[in-house]
Design a protein around this nucleic acid. Structure first.
Lengths: 353, 353
DNA sequence: TTGTATGCGTTATCAG
DNA sequence: CTGATAACGCATACAA
């Protein structure tokens, strides 16, 4: 029996369309009936269970295709202990929209892969869960049937998140945080190596000895790793390195450069935005010093001067993170995944479309 | 009775934490039991039903708070005909990450408001549903329990989407598309007026007569509206206007400017990216012409020359779209919402953080 | 005003 | 290999 919902402006056109397209949403029940099997059998076919004869499998699939049946995700997650949703937890940099590009790549990379793997993902921002206690956060995620969380932009100060990760209630994949456990994987480029590479290239190309290194925030996980890369390079080449914290701020990098840039041979920055700030400062000071950045954002192509930088494929990183999440949800243990990076110079002529 | 899941490395620490925090997720059933009422009563309290005595209401709320109960969204959407999820359908510009900023603002604006309104939203990209027929798309959304769709970046060529909107199967809110119906609302700034305003300001400031107008794509809804603004201005001021389609491409705008810029007094562009392309072309041509853009993206602050542009508050637009969606889901009819815009000049010094 | 019972569309268990 | 049937957590029509 079909139940008709209360329709107000009910006219012939609508009625026709209604009957034509069939208002009834086909469910697993319909498929079962049409194929002459039990609901459970259809479910088994759809979820690739063993112990289903090739014959009925084919018959069911035929009906599924013919009726255009698409299983209801919501019902599945409610019912199943295995399937659940994955949350993308993203720290949005409200200050600088110039790097929204990065988060957007993260999001699209994750969502695309999630669709491929039939994973249900929802996007959440740090601001929505900050100030929550561990309990509150846990309950919040549980109430959303979230089984796994992928975390972008986490810093050492995010204590509750740290607990969440260690707590094993959810499977977690962290980006750029050097932590793994049975339930936590980590995906990242080799930060130290990348920083080492880009700095070395810049320094070699310009025969530098005195280096100004503008680091990120003190509580950033990547900051340490990148500093380590610089330390190695310093020892290897016997450099003289002045280190200052720019906190990933373009403005602070600018000011640091205005203050120390003159007596240095080059400026190595832990982010593109800071590199841009440094470069603009040097232009204002009317002196030239090679500058290099980190990330490979498009903005680098718009500032006039070319700079070396590290290009990270954020979409690929995020895509991989989703794959790792799938593995964790399947019961595998957490691993550390190192993604490749490349050195580039972004030129306006090559960026423009 | 509590069921213990199979735990492998079971040790004392974990056990302690386990018992302490309570592995059992509190459900509406627990609340009901604890408060000494029926499940339905709890549900009624939570959903603000009338006909619940103030007394039991208080008692239930107390328990809810004490147990830290958070209703399960998934179960709710599965159960109720009213509550459902909302999809953000976004056209990602894969070519130019420079404007990811806009989509990011859309996403964060929507998600924040959705959380406020307790709406479950999921993000979807055009690429994931393109090539689908209306039926396929419908089934896809239905299978996700999606009741409403907010569409960003739709063009006239998206025929299936057009059908989807007219089809009334889902509630829809379109951004920048002049279409409303009982089930469709539209949110947008006044495109014509905004284009008129920014062009007029630029033209007046520089006493221009011969204008090069670089429009967007032929199949873009905003393109027509913005052209209309230019036409009005042309008549009002008796301008001589050459119109060319730049298709929102920085490169095309550059080439158009290289070709026609010299004989014009100024270049009015239908987007910031095109304005930047035009400006860079003029610099290469070593001539000065005032240029104005549209959108107010951060990149405008990085190109050296200041330009007038229209700032749209994308987050606010998106936030409003979610509000309108809520109304549609509540049974209200679609309306047209016009959001405010402002004229700005983006200066590097003011953008930098 | 409150409680009972049924359904939402799946998955999972277990008997056949 | 297949089929009943009980969950999953909540909403809601209807009975009390």
């Amino acid at each position: 029996m079909i139940t008709y919902r209360c329709v107000v402006n009910y006219n012939e056109t609508k009625r026709k369309r209604f009957l034509q397209e069939g208002a009834k949403v086909v469910s697993i029940k319909d498929v079962a009936k049409e194929a002459g099997v039990a609901i459970s059998t259809v479910s088994k076919v759809l979820n690739n269970y063993p112990n289903v004869s090739e014959d009925t499998k084919l018959r069911v699939m035929e009906v599924v295709k013919r009726l255009g049946f698409v299983p209801n995700t919501v019902a599945a997650t409610l019912s199943s202990k295995n399937s659940g949703r994955v949350a993308l937890l993203i720290k949005l940099n409200v200050e600088t929209q110039a790097i929204d590009e990065i988060d957007m790549q993260y999001i699209s990379g994750a969502i695309s892969k999630a669709r491929e793997l039939q994973l249900d993902v929802i996007t959440i921002f740090f601001s929505m869960v900050e100030n929550m206690t561990l309990d509150e956060m846990t309950r919040y995620f549980v109430s959303q049937s979230i089984k796994g969380i992928i975390i972008y932009g986490m810093s050492k100060e995010d204590k509750v998140l740290r607990q969440l990760i260690e707590n094993d209630t959810f499977k977690t994949v962290v980006i750029d945080v050097p932590y793994i456990s049975t339930t936590t994987s980590c995906v990242s480029v080799n930060q130290a190596k990348a920083q080492y590479d880009v700095a070395k290239k810049t320094i070699k190309e310009n025969n530098c000895r005195k280096v100004l290194y503008i680091a990120g925030t003190r509580d950033g996980y990547v900051t340490d790793a990148r500093l380590e890369g610089i330390r190695q390079l310093k020892e290897e080449l016997g450099l003289q390195v002045l280190i200052r914290n720019g906190n990933f701020s373009e403005l602070q990098a600018r000011n640091i450069t205005l203050k120390y840039g003159k007596n240095k041979d080059c400026v190595v920055c832990a982010s593109d935005l800071m590199a841009i700030g440094a470069m603009k400062a040097l232009i204002d000071m009317d002196i030239f010093r090679p500058v290099c950045g980190f990330d490979g954002i498009v903005l680098m192509g718009y500032v006039g001067k070319q700079m070396n930088t590290v290009r990270q494929n954020f979409a690929a990183i995020s895509s991989r993170a989703v794959e790792e999440m799938q593995k964790l949800l399947d019961g595998e243990e957490g691993i550390r995944v190192t993604m490749p990076h490349e050195l580039v110079r972004l030129k306006y002529e090559e960026i423009i479309r």
